[in-house]
Amino acid sequence: MAIGETIRNSQIWKSIFRHPMPLDRRNRIVVMLTNFFLHLHPVSIKKQGIALSFTWCMGGVTFFLFLVETVTGVLLMFYYRPTLEWAYNDILALRDVTSLGILRELHRWGAHAMVITTWLHMYRVFLTGSYKPPREFNWVIGVILLLLTLLLSFTGYLLPWDQLAIWAITVGSNMARATPILGYEGPGQQLLTIGGIDMITDGSDARFGLLGARFVGEETLNRFYVLHCIAIPLATALLLAIHFWRVRKDGGISGPL
């Protein structure tokens, strides 16, 4: 006990945690206001609003899974090389020989779980009518986050560079070929013909933009890697921040008026 006492009275501890342990009412309030991570939350909340049967905790679980994906993903980036030569072999090694290769399992299953929990979170928000005013705009941000979650999962699907990966992405990205006007097999692509020269070809259409090539190849691997590890996570993090901020600004967890 004495050691704990000494630590809590040391200058270092006090410089980090500016208040005593949150054991009494006053300090439990203070901790919410002074801690960077906790200040996302209000100080007090309606008891009904945090009942598990009401919220299912699915939004929180989704965010936690996003953090799991970030941590395991960064660790995997130290090991995995997104090139045709190495991508598959690195994943194979993660499965068979590398210590902590289970990180890949965590990352993959976490990703599937995150898609599911996002749907469940949305389902709960719908069923409690929580998208209604004043929370309309936060629902819209939520829909964009759903889309980003699916895109994160989709871009990550390619990285192991096995049969499952490239053919799933081939099937998925073939849709872009049929984009109206902008896909070279899409309706109305003939409209973008200037002086007899077809502007939309298999080397310039929406699918080419997505894949970086006419078929799923090394350019696609690189493109999806950058999207998966940097572009989409950044966008997601920004929108998550707005999403959480708006939860507070729109009146906290919903409840009957």
């Binding site: 949150p22 009412r25 439990r28 309030i29 901790v31 919410m32 906790l38 939350h41 209000p42 100080v43 007090s44 909340i45 309606k46 008891k47 009904q48 945090i50 009942a51 598990l52 009401f54 905790c57 929180g60 679980v61 936690f64 899974l65 799991v68 965590l106 299953w109 976490g110 779980a113 409840g255 009957p256």
Partner: peptide, 29 residues
Amino acid sequence: EKLDDEKVLVWPDLVYTELICMVAVSAFL
């Protein structure tokens, strides 16, 4: 949902629930 209008402090009532959820999800995963 209207019956329980009582307000509780987020520490400990919510943060502990969140902690337990995180541990449970980690274990499950």
